[in-house]
Amino acid sequence: MDIKEIIKPENLVHQRTSLMTDATLSYCPGCGHGTVHHLVMEVVEEMEIQEQTIGIAPVGCSVLAYDFMDIDMSQAAHGRAPAVATGIKRLWPDKFVFTYQGDGDLAAIGTAETIHACNRGEDITIIFINNGIYGMTGGQMAPTTLEGMKSSTSPYGRDLQSMGHPLKITELVAQLPGTNFVTRQAVHKPGNVRKTKKAIRKAFEVQREKKGMSFIEIVSNCNSGWKMSPNESNVWMEEHMFPSYPLGDMKVDGKIVKDLMKDLV
């Protein structure tokens, strides 16, 4: 099959969503952010809700998410995205409002805003990228950094005694009555990408039905911050991140579907 044959319209299996702008992504090659951006915009396009969708960009690598997604967006102060989203959603209850946050933003400085938005059952979607590190500021320790994991502020590895334990915030919010759909996914392999997209679609459907908070954690690599090649980082993620942050649904339709206590301790 030559190139002309391959690019025939009938052979098209995947097309870039029209809701991503032409701006060059600012993310490192190999990073999962770009994939997740595309998935969110694909879901918005497929549900035909561009005119009703408002996104919140955090402080972190995705601070410029509004440069890439062709929707109305608001930037938020560090950690405050769930509060910003609450303000918007309370006044525009029929819009689709999502936040896009990293682990430092959501699980450290924004813990209170995260827990309380979940507990109030705000009809928003939180998309939470967990790479175990502060990526944009140069790879500092995050609340999600694993035991023994080296970062620029834990150069000898995270010591649980003095630096505390990795925070599994998704297992915590799954237990709050305000959350309806809580899941942990990844985007490093095609199968995982498909599952994540399905989860994002489900989250937006929950929002449409006003059933409460939908919360998606996506365990992702940070090859630059972890100082690995993209491929190495994905292998390392499977071997080290997934045992601490196991993939799968935690809560579906308001019912806990997993032994959360087992994963927590």
Binding site: S74, G87, I88, R90
Partner: peptide, 12 residues
């Protein structure tokens, strides 16, 4: 802090 950020979101 949350209250003023709700204001920020809604004012937008």
């Amino acid at each position: 802090i949350a209250a003023i950020n709700m204001v920020y979101g809604a004012a937008g």
